[in-house]
Simulated assay, not measured.
Amino acid sequence: MLRNYRLKNYNFKLIINVLVLGIMGLIFIHSADASYVSKQAMGLIMGLIVMVIVSLIDFQIFTKNAVPLYVINMILLIGVRLFGKEVNNAKRWFSLGPLGTFQPSELTKIIMIIVVTAFLMRHEDDLNKPKTLGKLILICAPPLYMILQQPNLSTTLDICFIVVAMVFVAGLDSKLIVRVVAVGVPLLAVFLWYVQQPYQILLKNHQVERIMSFLHPEDYANSTALQTNNSVMAIGSGGLFGKGFGSNTISDVSSSDVNLVSEQQTDFIFSVVGEEFGFVGCVIVIIVLLVLVMQCIQIARKADNREGMLVAIGIASYMGFQSFINIGVATGVMPNTGLPLPFISYGLSSVLSASICIGLLLNINLQGNRY
């Protein structure tokens, strides 16, 4: 349903922020691998169009249809499991021929924000009851399990972080949070011990190796930890102001046959930023991303209803957690995982997913400024 919104209430600052990130992305991707630039530019144009269309549709239409969206999401996740394109022993993508690929798990992030919002609205008065939280876990479990089986641990954890943030803001009892932390920390220690055992069945071998290479990088310096170590080296080599545009020699695998940093146009795009533009360039990128997250939070605070606030918080968590994880991996402070940097990393699915989120934010902002 389209409404009569006023152009003066449109949040152009948010759009400008997104465009700045997109242009930065094109510059960095060009340095990483120029062959990806045209597709990324096309994705940004498509994303901008989708963003505007979604911004003019009442966001509550999506929350009212959370159940059909959930079902569609499950169909896509099951479909990609059965018929998806396999790359490096992972089935995460549908092949779209010359258009590239589509990754349903990127869409899952948005749909789960909508589904969790609808759930929290229905259980506003009994959120802290174990039965209610149990229902939420049962709702989240099927899509998370399907994504984990692709395998895609990073996206699974990303969605978990988003859901936890939304539940916290919705009014989770602080006493319950303390209890969860008291139980969760020992469980995490047990989990880390268990996945190192030869009989463990929770994670794939490569996932265990990534965790172990983070905990004991010296033992994996020439294998799993090599990429992260080289990413850190590339960032450090940039110094204060960097080597200059197009001068990446460490983060550019095409300049050497030793595969220093692979997938630098996606998961390790930040290594290109650090090497070419130095510490100053890294800080600028982080500031622009931080401003984006703060704009999301500001829209949440000004939303004229609780529903809009929860959706906006979910999107703020999406942008914030994903940025933190991507940069954390590139700088070696987190285990190696595959998450794109919003609007900067190459990936049409990622760009379209993030664009839909911004469209929802724009609509929430418009509804909060109708009068």
Rank of each mutant, 00 (worst) to 15 (best):
F324P: 03
G47T: 09
D58C: 06
K302I: 08
I139A: 01
F28W: 05
L136W: 02
G100Y: 03
V185D: 06
D257F: 07
N11Y: 12
Q322L: 04
E86I: 10
C282L: 04
I147A: 03
G314H: 09
N365Q: 12
S256P: 00
V280P: 01
L292V: 03
Q322I: 09
C140I: 10
S271L: 07
Y145C: 15
V181N: 03
G242V: 06
Q295W: 10
S213K: 03
N89R: 08
L148N: 11
N248L: 06
A225N: 09
F59C: 01
L19H: 02
P198L: 06
F83Q: 06
A90M: 06
C357Q: 15
R210Y: 06
L138G: 11
I364S: 02
V67Q: 08
S254P: 00
T249M: 13
L203K: 04
I201P: 04
M1G: 14
D304P: 00
H30W: 08
S247T: 08
V181S: 10
P335I: 03
P104A: 05
V167H: 04
G347M: 05
N305T: 14
N65V: 04
N222T: 13
P340Y: 06
R306A: 14
I315A: 00
E275M: 07
L21R: 01
Q265W: 08
A165L: 12
D267K: 05
F245E: 06
V52D: 02
M24H: 04
G25A: 08
D58E: 15
V167Y: 04
S255H: 14
L176T: 08
M121A: 14
L292R: 02
I139M: 07
G97F: 05
V163W: 00
I72E: 00
F62N: 01
H123T: 13
V280Q: 02
P104R: 01
V169A: 11
M166I: 07
V71S: 07
F119K: 09
A225H: 09
L99W: 13
V261E: 01
V291F: 10
A32M: 04
G134S: 13
L188R: 05
V253E: 11
L260N: 07
I29W: 03
K85H: 12
S31P: 00
L215V: 13
S38I: 14
V293A: 14
A300K: 03
I162E: 02
I325V: 15
L127Q: 07
V164N: 02
Y36S: 02
I57L: 14
E209D: 14
Q295T: 01
V54I: 15
N365S: 15
K135L: 14
C357H: 12
S349I: 05
M121L: 15
S55L: 01
K129N: 11
I201A: 14
M24K: 00
V293M: 12
L192T: 10
Q322K: 05
